[in-house]
Write a protein that binds this DNA or RNA. Structure first.
Lengths: 216, 216
DNA sequence: CATTAATTTGAACAAGTGATCAATCATGTT
DNA sequence: AACATGATTGATCACTTGTTCAAATTAATG
C-alpha cells in the first residue's frame, strides 16, 4: 500500500510526512526559506534529516508542497464567496461581498487550528522579489485574482483598467499587511487594534475599505 | 584623522565604506538578510571580506547601518509634510496632506537615484516577524507613527482609538504593499497599473484611500 | 625620516549548509 | 518462511557560512 505506510502509531498520531509539513510551515513563516535549515525542520518534526529529501526531493520542494496543500483551500473558499457575490443585484452589496470573499478566507486562517502560520508565509512570499522565479503565486493565485478583477470591472464599467487594478491591489495590500503583522499593530495601538480578533477587524476594516478614510 | 582615511582615489570615486552600504542595501533588499552572504556583498562592493566586519562589526551591524543612514531622511520628510498638514484648516484637505506625507517620501525613493532598494528592504523588514527582536522599526519609525496617529485623532475626535489605528494601518499597509511589489502588480494589470510611475500611482491611490472603493 | 595609528588584505577557523546513499527496519503479500 | 516494497536512519559529502586575525599597506604627525 502507498497510503498508510507503517500505520502511524509511534508518534503523536500524526504521520511523519504531515509532521514535516507542519514544522516547516511554522519555521518558514517565522524565519523565511533562507533563515530555516532542513535540520531545524527535522528536529521540530522529530524525524531524521534524510526523510525530508526522501519525501519532498529538496528544501524548495518542501516549500512548494506547503503551498500546494494550503492554497487550493483558500482559493476555493474565495471562489465560493465570489459566486455568492455574483448573485447579488445591488452593486454596493456585491462589492462588499467581493471584499469579504477576499479577506475572510485568509483572516480566518489566523485564528483557526494551528494553521496561523500559512498567512504569514503567504505574506512573506508576496513580499519576496524572488517569488517570481519560484512562480508559486503566479501558478496558484493569479487565476482567482483575474476572476476577482473581472467581477470588479462589472461593478465599475466606467472606471479605467488602472483604477480597477489599483482598487484590487489596495484590498490585497491591506489583507497582506494584516496577515503579516507580527505584533506591531497591537504594540502601536496598545492593544486597541488586534488582527487576532477577526470579527472586530472585519467590522472596522471592511467599511474603511468601502467608504474610505474621509467618510463615516 | 578619522574622517578621510586613504583619501579615496583608487575606486569609483566612492569610499569603500559607502560601496559596502550600497551593495548590501541592494542584496539585502532582493534576497533578505539570510539569503545574502557577506562574501556576496564583498564581491559586489569590490572589497575584501574582512573589511565588512572591520567597519560594521557584524553582518547585522551592517544591516542596521543601512537603516540608520536611510530612515532619518524619510522620517524627516514625513515630519515636514505633517507640519504643513497641521497648518491646514479644512479637515478634508488636512487628511489628504497627512496621507501624502506618509506616501510621498517612500514612493519617491522608488524612482530616485539608486536608492530604490531601500523601499523594498523596509517592506521586507516590516513583514519579518523577527523584526521585533532587532527593534529597528520600533526605534526609528514608532515615534513618527505616533505623531501621525495623534494628528489623525484630531481629525476624527468622534472615532474610537481602534478605528483611528486601523485607518493608519490601512494607509501604511497600502504603502508597504506598493513598495514591496516586485512586478506582480504590473504583470496582473498587463502594465496598466505600474508602481514605478509615482504620479499616476498617487493620483489613483490617494483618492481610493480617501474616498474608499464605493464612491468615485 | 621615524613613529604611530588607521586601514586593508586574504588566509584560516569552526560551525553549519543541503543533499546523498548504503544499510536497516517494518510491513503486507505470496 | 521467503520475498518485495516502501519507510527510516544517520553517517558522510562537498561547500558555504560569519567571523577572526596576524601581517602588510597606507597615511598623517612629530
Amino acid at each position: 500500500m502507498k497510503t498508510t505506510g507503517r500505520r502511524r502509531a509511534e508518534h503523536d498520531e500524526e504521520g511523519a510526512q504531515s509532521r514535516i509539513l507542519h514544522a516547516a510551515e511554522e519555521l518558514f513563516a517565522n524565519s523565511g526559506i533562507d533563515g530555516t535549515s532542513v535540520r531545524q525542520i527535522a528536529e521540530k518534526a522529530d524525524v531524521p534529516v534524510g526523510l525530508i529529501n526522501y519525501y519532498f526531493g529538496s528544501k524548495e520542494g518542501l516549500y512548494r508542497a506547503i503551498f500546494q496543500a494550503r492554497a487550493p483551500v483558500v482559493v476555493e473558499e474565495r471562489r465560493v464567496g465570489l459566486a455568492m457575490a455574483a448573485m447579488e443585484d445591488d452593486p454596493r452589496r456585491r462589492l462588499e461581498m467581493i471584499v469579504k470573499a477576499i479577506l475572510v478566507p485568509m483572516l480566518n486562517l489566523r485564528s483557526r487550528e494551528g494553521i496561523n502560520h500559512f498567512s504569514l508565509l503567504l505574506a512573506r512570499e508576496t513580499g519576496d522579489p524572488r517569488s517570481t522565479e519560484r512562480g508559486i503565486l503566479q501558478e496558484m493565485f493569479d487565476p482567482i485574482a483575474r476572476e476577482i478583477i473581472g467581477q470588479l470591472k462589472l461593478i465599475w464599467p466606467q472606471r479605467s483598467d488602472a483604477e480597477v487594478h489599483w482598487a484590487y491591489q489596495m484590498i490585497i495590500g491591506v489583507m497582506i499587511f494584516i496577515m503579516a503583522d507580527g505584533g506591531r499593530i497591537t504594540r502601536l495601538s496598545e492593544g486597541r487594534a488586534d488582527p487576532e480578533n477577526v470579527d472586530d477587524t472585519l467590522r472596522i476594516v471592511v467599511p474603511l475599505l468601502l467608504n474610505g478614510l474621509a467618510s463615516g
